[in-house]
Amino acid sequence: MGPYPGTVATPWSLTIDCASPSTLAGFWAEALGYAPAPPPPGWSSWDAWFDDHDVPVDERGDGAFLHDPAGVAPAISFLRVPEDKIVKNRMHLDLAVGGGRHVAWDERRRRVVTEVERLVALGATVLAEVPADRPDHVTMADPEGNEFDVL
């Protein structure tokens, strides 16, 4: 049982520290099919919410927020931090576009390659194909260097 009455799991979202929240949110919105999050219920805009919560104008670009338009997947927040990324992620996203191991390797590979090409056009970079001899997945980095896999 989750921490809230009637829930099975704990509600959660993903937060990504970054240098440019709007740029990274734009990349991940395109990569995942997400959209900018609407303002919280009761506010007509994010600026209205910021005004009501006394958020200074010069801090309003310090975050960007995405949601799954279908309401199924978790929300994602991007928060500006002063430090650069310096080490490999210990947690990463897997974009499961290939369909799983029950799909023939040639078809999985075609799907993965197509998605990798799309993501490169959006600003991602290829880091490695794993394993190199018959790739099961491709490790990539988003525009700020955060690793993720396409499988």
Rank of each mutant, 00 (worst) to 15 (best):
M1G: 15
M1W: 08
G6F: 12
G6K: 11
V8W: 07
A9N: 15
A9R: 14
S13N: 15
T15E: 15
D17I: 07
D17W: 10
D17P: 09
C18P: 08
A19C: 12
P21T: 07
P21F: 06
S22K: 13
T23G: 05
T23M: 09
A25G: 04
F27I: 02
F27W: 02
W28R: 01
W28G: 00
W28N: 01
A29L: 04
E30A: 13
E30R: 11
L32Y: 01
G33E: 08
A35Y: 00
P38H: 04
P39E: 00
P41H: 01
P41K: 00
G42F: 01
S44F: 01
S45W: 03
S45M: 04
W46G: 01
A48Y: 04
W49I: 01
W49Y: 14
F50T: 06
D51M: 05
V57K: 12
V57S: 12
D58L: 05
D58S: 08
E59K: 09
R60H: 11
G61S: 13
G61C: 04
D62T: 10
G63R: 05
A64G: 02
P69D: 10
A73N: 10
I76F: 10
S77Y: 08
F78V: 04
F78L: 03
F78C: 02
R80T: 08
V81Y: 12
V81N: 12
V81M: 15
V81Q: 15
E83V: 09
D84E: 15
K85T: 09
I86V: 15
I86M: 08
I86Y: 03
K88R: 15
K88P: 06
K88W: 04
N89R: 12
N89C: 11
N89Y: 02
M91E: 07
M91F: 13
L93S: 04
D94Y: 07
D94A: 12
L95F: 14
A96Y: 04
V97N: 00
V97S: 00
G98V: 09
G98R: 09
G99Y: 09
G100A: 13
R101Q: 11
H102T: 14
W105V: 10
R109Q: 11
R109G: 02
V113Q: 09
V113E: 12
T114I: 01
E117Y: 01
R118D: 07
L119N: 05
V120A: 11
A121P: 06
A121W: 06
L122P: 05
L122A: 07
T125L: 12
V126Y: 05
A128P: 03
A128K: 07
A128G: 03
E129N: 06
A132Q: 11
D133Q: 14
R134K: 15
R134C: 06
R134I: 02
H137D: 03
T139E: 14
T139W: 11
M140E: 11
M140Y: 12
A141T: 14
D142E: 11
D142L: 08
D142K: 09
E144C: 10
N146D: 06
N146S: 10
N146Q: 06
E147V: 10
E147M: 09
F148E: 04
D149W: 05
V150T: 02
